[in-house]
Structures are given as structure tokens and as C-alpha cells.
Simulated assay, not measured.
Amino acid sequence: MNWTVAIVLVILAIVVVLRLIAWWGWRLVSYLFSRLITVISQVRQRDDITALGAKFEARFPRTAGFLHARLTPDRFTGLPLTLVVIAAFYLAALFGGLVEELFEADELVRFDQWLNQQLAPLRTDGVITLFAWITDLGSSATLVAVALVTTGLLWGRSHGYMIAPLWLTLIGSQITTYTGKYVIARPRPEFITEVVALTPSFPSGHATSAMAVYGFIACILATRVAGIRPRFEIIYWAAVLIALVGFSRMLLSVHYVSDVAAGFLVGGFWLLLGFALAEHRRRLIE
């Protein structure tokens, strides 16, 4: 068995094990979320809570209306949208913290360089060829093509309201990424494979775009299928694809791990904004 086949088998084994763990985690989160909705509904129906709410609404009508609109679990623009917005701003805060660490903490730079060195034994010709193909799945050309095909499918299936959110996700993530690249201007790792790049390193454009576009498509598909298991499969395998694209950038020594992490955060931010806009527009036309 050659080294390339061994690495592929190890990756497949990791993916299978993580799938089992993720499936049980998915079921647990789904159960806890459903219980949360049930508890909220039960609390709202209690007489003492209803009376207290009526008094609060009578005294502070605008505040009560705002809180009800933001926290109701009965429609997407209520509690679900509130959670999405909170998650988006949390990702933005994490990205800001990562940028701060990059400039002020030598530990992050040393860890980036250490991990890049640890990947050196994996950089055989066969592995490089495989991951060079995988990394192309996150290139701008590929993702624009994916977005164009998706646009055609959405238009053909009378889901045109999703087209603008899709392109907002792609274009917004690209603008943010390239702004960050040239503002931060971090040098890339030393190129030790045939894969090279001309732009600065931080954040990873491939990781950003893969998270934004593939993540957006996966979320839209997951909301259109019935059942916990099909939704899990869509989200999980999209996550595997996104993770492989990010890992390929590190293995090919064109990005550090913090570049990829930052790309995932930026892409996740735009993914959540695009998904929220798509769901909001869907509710308007229903």
C-alpha cells in the first residue's frame, strides 16, 4: 500500500467516525431545540406569565412589541432570525479576535508555522495531486460556476427569490476577504509545492468562498427536505467538502491554519446573512 492510498484511507476513516459522532450530536441538538420551543410555548400560556406580560405591554407597548417580534418561535422572523443574527455577530467577533491575536500574540504565529511543518511528511506527489484537485473546488472560478448553475436551477424551479441572497453571499464574502487580505497584508507560507498564489495570505479566499457558497446551498436544501436524517446528511457532507477545501490550502502550503479559520468565520458570517435574507424573502411570498 503506497503512502497516498494510506492517507486517503485514514481520511475516510476519520470522516466515517466523525459522521457517527455528528449524527448523535445532531439528534441531541434537535431534541434540545424542540424542547426549548415547547418550554417557551408552555411558559407563554401560563396565567401568571400572561398577566405579567399584559401589564408590561400596557406600560411599555413598543418594547413589548419589539421583544415579541424578536422572540416568538412561531415564525422565522422571530426567534430563529434572532438566533441567526446573534450567531453572525458572534462569528464577526471571533474574526476580530483572531485578527487581534495575529498582530499581538506570537503564539498564534508560532503555532501556524509549527503546524505547517508537521504537514510536511504528507506532501508526497500523489497526495499533492489529490489535494490540488480538491482545492480547485474552492477556487473563485469554480464557485462562480456553481453559483451560475444554482441560479439556473433556482430560476427553473420558481425559486427566484433565493438568487439575490445567493449572490450576496458569494460577492459579500469575496469583498470582505480581499479587503482583509490587502489591509492585513500577511505574507504566505513558503511555497513548497507547484501550487502558488499571488494575493496576501489572511484570510483564505478558498475557505471563505467554500463556506459561503456550499454552506448556503446546503442550508437551503436542508430546509426543503423533511426529516432529521436527510437534513443531517446534507449538512454533514457539505461540511466535509468545506473542511477538505480548507485542509487542502494548509497541506499545499499556501495558507496557515489561522488563515483558513478566518476564512471559515468570514464565510460563515455571510452564509448566515444570506440564509436569513432567503428565508425572509420566502416568508414574504408565501
Rank of each mutant, 00 (worst) to 15 (best):
I21P: 13
E104G: 09
F269K: 03
S173I: 01
F56R: 04
F60S: 10
T199W: 09
M162L: 11
L71W: 02
R157P: 02
G267Y: 01
T208L: 01
I242A: 00
R229P: 04
L28F: 10
T38A: 15
W133Y: 14
S139H: 00
H206K: 09
F131K: 02
A13F: 13
D47H: 07
R157A: 08
L91Y: 07
L221Q: 06
H68R: 13
A262W: 03
S201A: 14
G180V: 03
F60Y: 10
R249H: 07
S258M: 03
K181C: 12
T38H: 12
V29W: 08
D74N: 10
R186H: 05
V84F: 10
V8R: 05
A238T: 11
L52Q: 08
A212Y: 01
A261N: 04
L130E: 04
T150Y: 10
W23E: 14
T82F: 07
T124C: 00
T151H: 00
L20V: 13
T129V: 03
G227R: 08
L251C: 07
V17H: 06
W24C: 01
V16L: 12
V15M: 05
V196H: 12
V149A: 12
H68P: 13
L122K: 13
V195C: 00
G227H: 15
P61D: 08
I40F: 07
L9T: 09
Y90I: 07
V84P: 02
L137D: 03
L265H: 04
G53W: 11
R35C: 09
T124I: 03
P203S: 06
I40P: 08
G180C: 13
F89Y: 15
E279Y: 00
A87D: 03
S173N: 00
T129H: 09
L153D: 14
L83P: 05
Y31M: 13
G227S: 01
V195I: 06
W3S: 15
I86W: 12
V99L: 12
H280K: 02
M162Q: 08
A185S: 11
V99N: 13
M211S: 10
F131Y: 02
I234F: 06
T135C: 11
L67P: 10
L71A: 00
T223Q: 06
G268I: 08
V39H: 13
L67R: 06
L241V: 03
L115S: 00
P187L: 06
